[in-house]
């Protein structure tokens, strides 16, 4: 009530009294501003939960704490045959991916660039893409043996279709006006390909590579796990039967890290090469 009659100085804001930022309040504010920190904390909490659960509640025959898994990674790599199996898997992934990209690009361009072949063959490709290839995994082993060839072939069978479909979509999505303009300015077929189609294909090419990588990873890992007499599948079966969760978790983590690294590489490439297009 006392302030009622007071004359406030015009134009000068009354000094706001700010509450001294207590430590609790400032951390909360920091968390609010940076969800990434909160995300890391959630991850840390999950790992802590895993650690505690494995230490006190769950039978050590089935689950071991992450600290122990991490500590015994060295031991895992010293296990006879494990580094070789991991190396072979990485090699299979690389080869399967390269083959998928080459075949996918060739088929995608052939099918996408002509209206007639697009109309004729796209339904067949979509039909093949839609069938569950996992049911024919035993056939791949029958034809290609239990070595790398079957795993590469199965990886290609998973990786090639998303690449074809994305490339066809990318070629088809070029605005007709660009083609018409190039035509009317007298561009040759090669010039149209080099200066119109090619630059427009790059984003979809890398999007297709990303999807293809996901498919290749799935295919190769499925085949690796299926063959239980050699490679990764042998060791997962072995560790499972020996109730050795430490090594099993270690092996799975290394494979997961490999998958994440490969996926991330392709995703970065997609962002990098797609950046010129703003629309």
């Amino acid at each position: 009530m006392s302030s009622q009659g007071r004359i406030e100085p015009v134009g000068v804001a009354a000094p706001r009294i700010q509450p001294a930022p207590g430590p609790r309040r400032s951390t909360m504010a920091a968390l609010r501003r940076h969800p990434a920190i909160a995300r890391l904390m959630v991850l840390a909490a999950l790992f802590l939960l895993w650690e505690l659960a494995a230490r006190w509640w769950i039978d050590p025959d089935f689950l071991s704490p992450p600290s122990q898994v991490l500590a015994s990674l060295g031991e895992l790599f010293e296990t006879q045959g494990v580094p070789a199996a991991l190396q072979i898997t990485l090699w299979e992934l690389a080869v399967a991916f390269a083959i998928s990209v080459v075949i996918g690009l060739a088929v995608g361009l052939t099918v996408g660039l002509s209206r007639f072949s697009n109309r004729s063959f796209m339904p067949i490709i979509l039909l093949l893409y839609g069938t569950p290839q996992i049911t024919i995994l035993p056939l791949f082993i029958l034809y290609f043996g239990i070595g790398s060839a079957s795993k590469i072939a199965f990886g290609v069978s998973h990786g090639v279709f998303p690449i074809i479909v994305t490339i066809v979509a990318g070629v088809q999505n070029i605005k007709p006006i660009l083609m018409t303009a190039a035509h009317s300015m007298g561009a040759s077929r090669w010039q149209i390909f080099r200066w119109v189609i090619f630059p427009h294909m790059i984003p979809s090419f890398f999007a297709g590579m990303r999807l293809g990588m996901t498919g290749v990873l799935l295919g190769v890992l499925l085949a690796e796990l299926y063959v239980s007499t050699a490679g990764i599948g042998y060791f997962t079966t072995l560790f499972t039967q020996n109730f050795d969760p430490t090594k099993l978790l270690g092996l799975v983590s290394v494979l997961a890290a490999m998958a994440i690294a490969l996926n991330e590489t392709v995703r970065r490439a997609e962002v990098y090469f797609g950046r010129w297009r703003t629309d």
Binding site: T214, L218, L225, T240, V252, L255
Partner: peptide
């Protein structure tokens, strides 16, 4: 949470199968 879930989804989850068998 969304980036966490999306990140986990990019791992080939078939790798969990040996763990689940255990």
């Amino acid at each position: 949470f969304e980036p966490l879930l999306a990140g986990a989804y990019s791992v080939p989850i078939i790798l969990f199968l040996p763990l689940y068998v255990l």
